[in-house]
Amino acid sequence: MSPIKRNNPTRLPAISTASLPDIVFILLFFFMTVTTIKNQNLLVENQLPMASEVDKLDKTDRIIEIFVGPVSPNSYEVDNAPVKIQIEDRLVAINEVGYYSLKALGAIPEHLKKSAMVSIKADNKVKMGIITDLKKELQKVNLLKINYTTVEGNVFKNMELK
């Protein structure tokens, strides 16, 4: 017989798990406060470029988001234009940008309209041509405050991306 008994009832006290729910709840509240619910279905690919000299964006209630990027494979779009513009939940053509961004502006409360800003969330791979056209359309509808939304990081990594 071995000197150590295996089924010794006074071996180790069990670790109390009574505080486990509290710990998990704290984690849960942490994530609830620092994250936001995705309210849009992305229809285009959206890998933002990096930049280091960034300004924080205002609160989301005064932001008009415009996504630009190649059509993602999980959207059912049978158009072969490679790069698309998405405003709210739909893909729009370049000449419709003015209309839909004004529509988005209309949804912003009256007292915030003055500080409304357009956040251009364009994919890394996009060419400048479409961005230039987009800026021209925004100029036409007098939405002049724009923000090239980026991820904070080292800018020179942008150059290495294909």
């Binding site: 798990t17 849960l28 994530f31 620092v34 956040s119 100029q139 724009i146 923000n147 090239y148």
Partner: peptide
């Protein structure tokens, strides 16, 4: 604990961390 974990995982999956920062520009009229 299990219930709280389920809630936690649900929030982890459905939310994103706010990454909204960028270069502010003003377009000419």
């Amino acid at each position: 604990a299990d219930i709280a974990f389920l809630l936690l995982i649900f929030f982890l999956v459905t939310t994103t961390i706010e990454t909204d920062a960028g270069l502010d520009r003003m377009l000419p009229p």
